[in-house]
Amino acid sequence: MADPVPPHDHGFRRSRILAGAGGRWTAALTSSLIALASTAVVVGLLVWLIPKSKGFEEVKATFFDRAQFRDSFDGIGEAFKTNIKLFMVVEAIVLVLALVIAVMRSLPGPVFFPVRALAVIYADVFRGIPTILLILLLGFGVPALQVEGIPSDEMFWGGVALVLVYSAYVSEVYRAGIDSVHPSQDAAARSLGLGRFRSLRHVVLPQAVRRVIPPLLNDFIGLQKDTALVFQLGVVEALNQASIDASATFNYTPYLVTTVFFLAITIPMTRLTDWLIARDRRRRQAGGAIA
């Protein structure tokens, strides 16, 4: 490329023009300095203002106790593995179940009316129930039935509740993807003699799923956080461990520890999602030159 400046970076180009020829580094340095200065002002204000509040010393002692942080770190870290395990299993099931529901909902013709209706009812119901409520209903309700052969493990039923709720959400994401594939793609596949399901599997779904990866990841960030809700069933996961620690010491620092653990996995996922969305947009703006 002859021009070292990316053509879409208008702001950058303008500042280069202002800085004159060869001012590329000067311009970059200027923006960095401005960003640094404004950040310093904001952080400085916070650091200066917050300690001035009346309850600051008390909050500092209960939420930011260094020794307490160290003491509860390992235990909560251990308990956090439960959140991760729960998340991994639930996510894997949701990916498949939601796709099945989305496909059910996209089937055309009067023959499939009951299947479509079932999918619609499912999505409506499980998106409509507060997650915490469903977790309580299933986690306390089903084991209480004492039916033989049905697991009575709270963690199991908490997982089931998460699967039901998130499958409903994710099926809508998939459905949007399926709807975004132009009907002519299906027509082209069908005209080759591929049946409805083969066309779906080889032509429509691969394109649909690719397009909805960013919103899918978005829902999984939500799922990662919501694994903490099963603490209501008494499952010893990170939040529950924190509350056990907190009530033993009358110090809330363990909650801070749990927060740090959750952020440690959700922030990378959020960054990845944003990066994928940005990449997607760049590609589309490039006139669809890169698929």
Binding site: S184, Q185, A187, A188, A189, S191, V203, Q207, A291
Partner: peptide, 13 residues
């Protein structure tokens, strides 16, 4: 029966 469309409709993926 083969059919070819005005807009090609190749599979982009």
């Amino acid at each position: 029966v083969g059919i070819v469309f005005q807009s090609y409709n190749l599979f982009p993926h």
